[in-house]
Simulated assay, not measured.
Amino acid sequence: MRILCVAVLCAALGGCASVTRGWDENIAISSTPSGAIATITGPSEPQAPCVTPCSIKVKRSDDVSIAFAKEGYEPQIVNLTKEIAPTGAAGFAGNILLGGVVGGVVDAASGAALDHKPNPVIVTMQPIKPPAPAPRVGAKPRKPKPAPTS
């Protein structure tokens, strides 16, 4: 009987996403070219901007947005989405199947079954287009050609 209880307890804990995956997730951030400033908004714990390539640690339940800036390039913003990961779904299902309602509630509230997408976050910075050249001073304006007559 004792072996059966230990086996059930191990199976229940092994299926819990909070235990197997944790509440935090590392997100890798990179850009082409490298050296862009990545400003992170949304996490429950404030994040300092980082220079690409870099990584951050956020709660799985956090809404995260990353703004990229580099001199000479167009700024970009990437909004991350949250999806139920296959391993998170298995852990959540393990809670339900083994009667771990409390574990299921903890996983749902903590976001332990979620992953941020995309991860890694990779952007290709687009160069800022140079402005159109100004008309030359003293240049004669061109006369439009007359339309052909029929």
Rank of each mutant, 00 (worst) to 15 (best):
C10F: 12
K57I: 11
G15K: 05
S34H: 11
G35F: 01
G14M: 04
T81F: 09
T52R: 03
C16G: 08
S31N: 04
C10M: 14
G15C: 05
A85D: 13
T20E: 04
G42Q: 07
L97M: 12
A89E: 13
I27E: 00
A90K: 11
I27M: 05
S61L: 14
G91W: 00
I37H: 11
A67W: 01
S55K: 10
I56A: 05
N95E: 08
V8K: 09
I56L: 04
D62P: 06
E71I: 12
A85V: 08
S18G: 14
Y73M: 05
G99C: 08
P43T: 01
A28L: 14
G100S: 04
T32Y: 13
S18K: 09
A85F: 11
S61G: 09
S34N: 12
A17C: 02
R60E: 01
G22A: 08
Q47C: 10
G99L: 12
F68L: 10
T39G: 04
I40K: 08
I96C: 06
N26H: 12
A93D: 10
T81Q: 15
Q47R: 09
P86K: 06
A69G: 12
P75F: 01
K57L: 10
G88K: 00
G72Y: 04
K59R: 13
S30T: 12
P53V: 00
P43D: 02
P86F: 06
D62L: 05
G94S: 05
V78F: 01
N95V: 05
C50M: 02
F92Q: 13
P46Q: 03
S61N: 11
